[in-house]
Amino acid sequence: MTNRPANETPWEHFHHEADIGVRGYGSTVEEAFENAALALTSVMTDLSLVDPQTEVAIECSSPDVEVLFVDWLNAIVYEMDTRRMLFSRFSVSLNGELLHAKAWGETIDVPKHKPAVEVKGATFTELKVATDDDDRWLAQCVVDV
């Protein structure tokens, strides 16, 4: 669980001229990854509109934690695209180079979710996975829309 004050948003979008940056915070790197994934979904729709009904397992691996973060977001993009789903809850566990995760969501329902722009992929632009001065983890990159 996170130690941050309850009123602090655990994710945010940051500015990129043509596209959009996604950023997640957390007391662990896993939590930062989970929250960045929420930021990813919110590029497309309002998170509160997506019911976490169906569970999907996601795995990826990389020796470089920043590359792993890009892989993680791209794995979600792939699952969304091929399953025609949106996700609103994520659980990540890291074991060395391996990432095991679960994502919960539902099939896209256009009238319900009113999805806007689709994310084409996560990029290496503004890519960062690190701790800040308060030992809080941050995971971020720009996604191409």
């Binding site: 590359v67 892989d71 791209n74 993009v77 695209d81 084409k120 992929g121 996560a122 290496f124 191409d144």
Partner: peptide, 17 residues
């Protein structure tokens, strides 16, 4: 569409490495 996006994703990663 999705095919081009995935090729971009796959090869960007490979070329970075």
């Amino acid at each position: 569409r999705g095919l081009g996006h995935q090729i971009g994703t796959d090869y960007l990663r490979e070329m970075v490495l």
